[in-house]
Simulated assay, not measured.
Amino acid sequence: MRASVKRPPTPDAEEEQDQEPTLQEIINVKFIESGEKERLKELLRERLIECGWRDEMKDLCRALVRKKGRNNVTVDDLINVITPKGRASVPDSVKAELLQRIRSFLASASL
Rank of each mutant, 00 (worst) to 15 (best):
K37F: 03
K67S: 10
P21F: 06
S104R: 05
V75A: 08
T74R: 04
E42W: 14
L99T: 13
G86E: 03
L98N: 05
L99N: 11
V81Y: 05
L23N: 10
E36M: 12
L106T: 00
Q24H: 10
L60C: 05
P21V: 04
A96S: 14
D55C: 11
L99A: 14
M57R: 04
V73D: 01
A88H: 07
D18P: 00
L64P: 05
R45S: 08
K58Q: 06
A96M: 12
V81A: 09
T22I: 04
Q17K: 12
P84H: 06
A107K: 14
G69W: 03
N71D: 15
E56H: 13
V90Y: 00
E97H: 09
L98V: 06
E33K: 07
L106W: 02
M57P: 01
E97P: 06
Q100W: 10
M1N: 14
L98I: 15
K67G: 06
G69C: 05
G52A: 00
P9N: 13
A13P: 01
Q19S: 00
I26F: 05
A63Y: 11
P9M: 14
R45F: 08
L106S: 03
V81N: 08
R62D: 09
M57E: 03
K95A: 07
R47T: 04
A109Y: 03
V73S: 02
L40I: 11
D18N: 07
T10H: 09
L98G: 02
L98C: 02
K41D: 14
V75D: 13
E97V: 12
D76R: 12
E16Q: 14
G52P: 01
V73C: 01
D92P: 04
Q19H: 02
D55S: 15
Q17V: 00
P11G: 03
G86W: 00
K41A: 15
D76C: 06
G52K: 02
I26E: 12
R70L: 15
V75S: 11
L23K: 10
K95C: 10
R101I: 08
P9C: 11
K67A: 11
L111Y: 10
K95P: 05
T74Q: 08
R87A: 05
L98P: 00
L48K: 01
G52H: 03
A13I: 03
K95M: 08
V73N: 00
K6P: 09
E33F: 02
E42K: 15
R7Y: 14
S93F: 04
L99I: 13
R39N: 12
D76L: 10
V75M: 13
D18M: 07
R87M: 05
E25G: 01
